[in-house]
Computed example of a mutant assay.
Amino acid sequence: MGRRIQTTVFHATGQDAKIDGYFDRVIKYIPSDIVGAWIAITGFIPKETTDPNSGAILWLAFGIGLLLCAVWTAMQTREEGKPRATMQIVVSTSAFAVWVIALGRPFDSISGYHQYYGSLLLIAFTLVSGRLVPKD
């Protein structure tokens, strides 16, 4: 199973391909490899640290994570003869941002932020994103 969401199947190709349904799309939209890397990064930087640069490092890592997620998803969804999977790249990159917001850091440094906001956003985003069907 490739990472690219399949919305069309041509039977003449002789391959056993199938159109991705709701749950397949949810799974393919979530950049679990990049989210896993983010969890590891935040594990390296203790929450209770005396380093005044830790917040800036986390914000920088978040920015790099967004960029990396877009590039990584573009590479994983590339298929010859098909246009770039732009919608999937945008949704996956947004999913990374939503996961980071739900996990808390570095957004917990923003006044008025509560982690349960992020958790509620994550639930809503995940349920809605699976309804998005990209055009091939």
Rank of each mutant, 00 (worst) to 15 (best):
D51Q: 07
T49V: 07
G55Y: 05
I39A: 10
D33C: 03
I34M: 14
E48M: 11
A56I: 10
T50M: 10
I30W: 10
V35N: 05
L58I: 06
Y22V: 04
L58C: 05
S32P: 00
K47I: 15
Y29D: 09
G21D: 12
I34K: 12
P52E: 11
W59R: 08
D33W: 08
R25G: 01
G36N: 04
D24L: 06
K47T: 12
D20G: 04
G36E: 02
I41N: 02
D20L: 06
W59N: 10
P46Q: 06
G21Q: 08
P31K: 11
R25A: 06
F23N: 10
D51F: 09
R25T: 08
G43E: 06
K28C: 07
L58T: 06
T49A: 10
W59P: 08
D33Y: 09
Y29A: 08
A56P: 00
I45V: 14
S32C: 11
A40Q: 02
S54N: 13
D33G: 10
T49R: 00
A37T: 13
A56E: 07
F23Y: 13
A37H: 01
A56T: 12
D20V: 02
N53M: 15
I57P: 09
I57V: 15
I45N: 02
I19R: 06
T42N: 08
V35K: 02
D20A: 04
I41A: 12
F44I: 13
K28V: 02
G43I: 07
K47A: 15
G55W: 01
P46K: 02
D33P: 00
T50H: 11
T49L: 03
F44V: 11
Y22K: 02
D33N: 13
I41W: 06
T49K: 00
V26A: 09
E48K: 11
K47H: 10
E48Q: 13
P31M: 08
K47Q: 13
A56G: 14
T49Q: 01
Y22E: 01
I39L: 15
I30P: 00
G36T: 06
F44D: 00
I30S: 11
P31N: 04
I34P: 10
I27P: 00
Y22F: 15
G21L: 07
W38H: 09
N53C: 07
I19L: 03
D51Y: 03
L58V: 04
K28Y: 02
A56Y: 09
I27L: 15
S54C: 09
D51S: 13
D51V: 07
I45R: 06
I39S: 03
I41Q: 01
P52N: 07
V26Q: 11
S32N: 11
I41M: 11
D20I: 03
G36V: 04
T42A: 03
A40S: 12
T42K: 08
V35A: 03
K28R: 13
G36Y: 06
V26Y: 01
R25C: 04
D24A: 15
T42S: 04
G55H: 07
I57Y: 05
G43D: 02
K28W: 00
I30K: 02
S54W: 10
E48S: 13
I45Q: 04
I57A: 14
S32V: 15
L58A: 05
W59E: 05
T42R: 08
F23I: 14
V35G: 01
G21R: 12
G43A: 09
W38S: 04
G43F: 10
I57F: 09
I41P: 01
D51G: 03
I27C: 07
A37E: 01
S32G: 14
I57S: 05
G55R: 12
